[in-house]
Design a protein around this nucleic acid. Structure first.
Lengths: 215, 215
DNA sequence: ATTCTTATATTATGATCGTCCTATAATCGA
DNA sequence: TCGATTATAGGACGATCATAATATAAGAAT
């Protein structure tokens, strides 16, 4: 009922950011209200302003944290893949039905980039920094070409994958949605990833990914 | 003050859809309120429900109309281009600063696809139909390959361009934003469009587009 | 010309929003 | 141990939202 310890407050703060980051991706910033968010983590709405000066401040921190975590997960996935298959692992996972069907745990770009334009400067800066980091990390995984060409290809790949998931999520027709993902996966793999021999004719889920949970 | 003629009502209806379609792209569906929208076109908010049963109905009609108009404009631009340069014209315009800086008159995909997922079924169907039509029309402009391959490439190109504009608009750093557009324009041109000789070394705005206004 | 219909104006309703204020009780600093 | 600090609870505020109900004046139908 009354105050808790400082360690507890830090835990509350993290729970708040985590829940917000998931809700923002699921229902958008404008579609996420402070009262509902606080209720989700089991607190009353008035308490919010003990943790953040404003909703914008929460949005900015969620963006920064979420983008960083998302990139780290992708890079870990690439590092865990068999030698030379890092980029394949990223592409396959990004353009998968799992990622499409779980926006709340997915990449920020297809979920929130559309809203960023309308956010205050602080939020947009947080997003820009996170995106720049994403581009740089992605360029490191790209194989061919000089640094400039890899950087350009990272921009193309990141925006292309984000657009694909964006449209795949918007569409009601599952077949069309699947086809968007499949076509883009094949295309970007051929364009940027090392050509892994397509052993079996039917291209079922090559490189099955076991881990559930966050993308 | 009181009722107007039927022709006038039809005009009001169109003004309403046009204003909504622009506002939705600029500030999003959730960021566009009926009272403000009605004030924009010079009517009081109560009148809205003489034209639409609900906000959702307006959103659905705006999607359908806006997507169709947007595709028509792109195809006209392609048809007006010099022989063999149709796809170049589409790509250059889509990935231009003009398009990036004018979401209200631009393509629906980068502006609204993120919100579609959260809209009611009617709206999502309207969007899906419009998108399917866009894919088909775009495939007609693609040159090489059989029908299936052209259809796949249309998916890749459309989602890729949408993602590029999405990110280019989100970012605060203009240089980074420009680079996203430039890298994607070069890449998709090389991948899908007929290779137009890059005469002068510096790639300034080739194919300057005169028309202002709607994308 | 007169009645019926209806496009707009006006006002109301209940919900929800972001934010602020005050009270309380438990932790923290001494 | 005891006073100062503060994390949370609980209301309250004004604004805005989507929608509805009623009123009015002008077109449409006869």
């Amino acid at each position: 009922m009354a105050r808790t310890s400082r360690a507890e407050k830090a835990r509350t703060h993290k729970r708040l950011v985590d829940a917000a980051s998931r809700d923002f991706r699921t229902t958008g910033v404008e579609g996420t209200s402070i009262p509902r968010l606080m209720e989700e983590i089991g607190l009353t709405h008035g308490t919010f302003y003990a943790h953040f000066d404003s909703k914008d401040a929460l949005v900015a921190e969620s963006y920064a944290t979420g983008m960083r975590e998302s990139v780290d997960r992708q890079m870990k996935r690439a590092a865990d893949a068999p030698s030379g298959q890092g980029l394949n692992a990223i592409i396959d996972r990004y353009l998968s039905a799992i990622h499409r069907d779980d926006p709340g745990d997915g990449c920020f770009l297809p979920s929130m980039a559309g809203e960023v334009r309308r956010q205050p400067e602080i939020v947009r800066h947080a997003f820009t920094d996170g995106l720049r980091n994403y581009f740089e990390r992605l360029a490191e995984v790209l194989a061919d070409g000089d640094a400039d060409s890899r950087a350009d290809h990272a921009l193309v790949l990141a925006s292309g994958m984000a657009g694909a998931v964006l449209l795949a999520r918007a569409v009601t027709d599952v077949e069309l949605s699947d086809r968007i993902l499949d076509a883009c996966r094949d295309f970007y793999t051929a364009a940027f990833a090392s050509p892994v021999a397509e052993s079996t004719g039917d291209n079922e889920d090559t490189t099955p990914i076991e881990d559930t949970g966050q993308w």
